[in-house]
Nucleic acid binder design. Structure first.
Length: 557
RNA sequence: GCCCUCGUAGCUCAGUUGGAUAGAGCACCGGACUUCUAAUCCGAUGGUCGCAGGUUCGAAUCCUGCCGGGGGCACCA
């Protein structure tokens, strides 16, 4: 019996109590029954606090309410015990077979186990990273790459069609500084004020020059300075962006759309969006400018969309962009932004509302910063000095799996300290290895079982899974669909990672106390076969969970 | 000054959206390998959940006010 089935069963018991006149409620009062795993094992397999939630309204004491439900639960097949405890908790113990059946159903469902439907048929646009191509992806961007891709995978697992999108621009102040820096680097000058340093600048500049020579173009350095800079801007941005895409690809993140900010302006989409807003009265005119009512969404002040000189403010592009995303089919637009962008939330929501969309269709996830720790001290990162830790640096030191896992196992809205020494050296201090090792173990057990000639299809008897470490493992396996559903609902991928760590621990404990393969000259029995089902079920869930984080599930380590 | 966010064990972090005795990993201490991988397992130590009030059967969780860290407050992009 899964927790979902148990939850539904309890609801039925309450409704029966209502029908029998023992509970003075209507069926509409019956809230969704939440079952949870008690922290203390002796309390049973599952517990619910529904009696405490409903007792008051029913005019009963919580314990009396719980007794009425317990009495009926006991008559249900697959439930061994239902006890009332404490202030009104209902502790439930499932029959051994009822829990054990799960091992088989997980293996049969395979990579679909845990799948959900909460986003079935919904088109979601997830925009993340979106760094302008003025340098390699740094640590912060790496975090959004890992988190954004994992959230996308979670949404897809719940039925969504996800567009992974990267928004960028190759014009503007920062890009000009980048172009200036390229030119300065190749000429052996110091980086300009507010420009970019670091080896990569010279590398890119060199490549631009080499490429020009190879195709027999005139030396761009012979051009007038402003033309040379423009030349380096176009070619340099292109090279830089290719490098970024390659880094992301090597990191396991591929975007469906790289959206060019300029295209909004050039195609007239900004203008059309602004006309639309003026016509619909979504903006108001004041002091010669057109304003967006962003204060209605928590902004400190309303924002100018069309400046008094008639030109579009930056935010106009954002609004046109929302409209473009929606017109391309997105029903939900999720933005992953750094903490320095939190002021954008109100503006984006106000923009969506002005366009006539539900402001809830724009969702902004604000992520906190990543700090790097080395030798017990924070590593100072300075962009000016080129002393920036990049995605490639991190991957070089710890590998893609450890990097992605470290960045996804914590909530995005907590600042994160990444300890390079720890990730690189002390392997057992690194949870990703613990989880991957558990998976490799399931694969190893399966290999050994095959050698012994143990075949799953020869037998399965759920009632044999009675060891305390087995019921614990089964309980955790049964939680996976709900953990995934919560991770999707709250957009919190780290729940999956934390769950996998619990699952790996439960598996290791089981592995330590029981055996799948026979010892000595023992005969192969259904117990061996049934445990192989459980072993394979665990491997399946570890694989499914790691896939949601974009982390490999190795067969051997 | 205002806004956002975080504050939980020595360190890094969870805490099932208000539930039972607040957890894990690391570090430290003590145990367990002739048998499916010891990258593991078992045990011990370690807490005024930043502080003070409030809400209720019940608060790490919700509300208010302080304190501390981080970020943000343009007719810039």
């Amino acid at each position: 019996m899964t927790p979902e089935e148990l939850s539904a069963t309890i609801a039925v018991c309450i409704e029966e109590g209502i029908a029998a006149g023992e509970i003075a409620l209507t069926n509409e009062d019956v809230v969704e029954v939440r079952v949870e795993r008690p922290k203390v094992r002796e309390h049973g397999d599952w517990a619910t606090n529904v009696a405490m939630q409903l007792a008051k309204k029913a005019g009963l004491g919580p314990r009396a309410f719980a007794e009425i439900v317990a009495k009926r639960l006991l008559t249900v097949d697959g439930i061994d015990a239902a006890d009332v405890a404490g202030p009104g908790f209902l502790n439930i113990r499932l029959a051994a077979g009822a829990a054990g059946e799960l091992a088989r159903s997980i293996v049969e469902e395979g990579e679909d186990y845990g799948r959900g439907e909460s986003f079935q048929g919904v088109h979601v646009n997830v925009e993340f990273v979106s760094a302008n191509p003025t340098g390699p992806i740094h640590l912060g961007g790496t975090r959004w790459a890992a988190v954004g891709d994992s959230l996308s995978r979670l949404l897809e697992f719940h039925g969504a069609t996800v567009t992974r999108e990267y928004y960028f621009n190759d014009h503007g102040v920062q890009i000009d500084k980048f172009a200036e820096s390229l030119l300065a680097a190749i000429l052996g000058e110091d980086a300009p004020e507010g420009g970019y340093g670091g080896d990569y600048v010279l590398e890119i500049a060199d490549r631009v020059l080499q490429d020009a020579m190879e195709v027999g173009e005139d030396d761009p350095l012979e051009l007038p300075r402003d033309e040379a800079q423009e030349y380096f801007r176009v070619r340099g941005v292109h090279l830089m962006f290719d490098q970024i895409k390659e880094s992301l690809h090597d990191f396991g993140v591929d975007f469906d759309v790289y959206f060019h900010e300029d295209s909004l302006h050039k195609s007239g989409k900004v203008e059309r969006a602004l006309d639309h807003l003026k016509d619909s009265g979504a903006l108001y005119e004041s002091e010669g400018a057109w304003w967006l009512r962003s204060t209605e969404y928590g902004d400190e002040k309303d924002r100018v969309v069309i400046k008094s000189d008639g030109t579009a403010a930056y935010i106009a592009g954002d609004i046109a962009y929302i409209r473009d995303k929606r017109e391309r089919g997105a029903q939900l637009c999720i933005y992953l932004l750094g903490a320095d962008h939190h002021g954008y939330i109100a503006r984006l929501k106000a923009g969506a509302a002005a366009l006539g969309y539900n402001p809830d269709s724009v969702e902004v996830i604000i992520g906190q910063m990543v700090n790097l720790v080395k030798d017990g001290a924070p590593v100072r990162m300075s962009k000016r000095a080129g002393d920036v830790v990049t995605m490639e640096d991190l991957v070089d030191v710890v590998g893609v799996d450890a990097a992605r896992y470290a960045l996804t196992r914590s909530s995005a809205d907590a600042t994160l300290d990444v300890d390079l020494d720890l990730l690189a050296s002390a392997t057992n201090a690194n949870p990703v290895f613990y989880v991957q090792y558990a998976h490799a173990r399931t694969a190893g057990v399966a290999r050994n079982a095959a050698e012994y000639g143990i075949r799953k299809e020869d037998g399965f008897d759920a009632t044999l899974l009675t060891h305390v470490s087995e019921t614990a493992l089964l309980g955790i396996l049964s939680e996976f669909p709900r953990i995934v559903a919560q991770a999707v609902e709250y957009r919190e991928q780290h729940r999956v990672a934390r769950y996998l760590e619990r699952l790996a621990a439960a598996f290791n404990q089981w592995y330590d106390r029981t055996r799948v393969t026979p010892q000595g000259d023992e005969q192969i029995t259904d117990l061996n076969r049934t445990r192989l089902w459980l072993n394979d079920a665990t491997g399946q869930v570890l694989r499914n969970g790691l896939a949601l984080l974009g982390v490999a599930a190795p067969e051997r380590m």
